[in-house]
């Protein structure tokens, strides 16, 4: 089985490119903390509201520029701790988001940001996001969950 000289060059260039991608995301994930979303803890999907993690919903300041944001999703609503469905976050804040669902799988997407996680029954999804850019962002569901899927939303305001 013979390979043309140019094909060997191409495979070297192509594989090299893929290796570069893997190194960039790998270093960023394992050494710089830029991980995909993961599980903070598991719980009983039929008793979510009773769980410790979900007693206080909404934004809570932990430290200088460190916050936690706890949100509960259900069909077809995001409970962000207030009926206005608005969360105000200071620009530059690092927020650890904790969210889960009380029923089916929901998405958790703050449009225009990297905050994008799946919420699955029995798991508390989490990731840490720094809100670098001011603006008004819509939190919405991007995983089909039933007839009201496209009606689930809240507003995240990142303020100066």
């Amino acid at each position: 089985m013979n390979m043309h000289k140019y094909e060997k060059w191409w495979m070297l260039f192509g594989s090299g490119t893929l290796l570069i991608f893997l190194i960039v995301v790998g270093v960023s994930a394992f050494y710089m903390g830029s991980t995909p979303p993961y599980c903070a803890t598991t719980l009983d999907p039929e008793n979510v509201r009773e769980h410790d993690s979900f007693q206080e919903l909404g934004l809570k300041q932990l430290d200088d520029n460190e916050y936690s944001l706890t949100i509960l999703a259900s069909a077809f609503d995001y409970d962000v701790g207030n009926p206005e469905k608005v969360i105000e976050i200071p620009k530059g804040a690092s927020v650890s988001i904790y969210a889960t669902t009380t029923d089916v799988i929901h998405g958790f997407e703050i449009a225009g940001t990297n905050a994008n996680m799946m919420l699955e029954p029995g798991y508390v999804s989490t990731n840490r996001y720094t809100f670098k850019n001011a603006g008004e962002y819509t939190l919405l569901c991007n995983e089909y969950c039933g007839v009201g899927h496209h009606l689930m939303a809240a507003t995240i305001k990142v303020v100066e």
Binding site: W9, W10, F13, G14, T17
Partner: peptide, 8 residues
Amino acid sequence: LFGVAIVG
């Protein structure tokens, strides 16, 4: 070679 370079 040119073609695959474009792809790359």
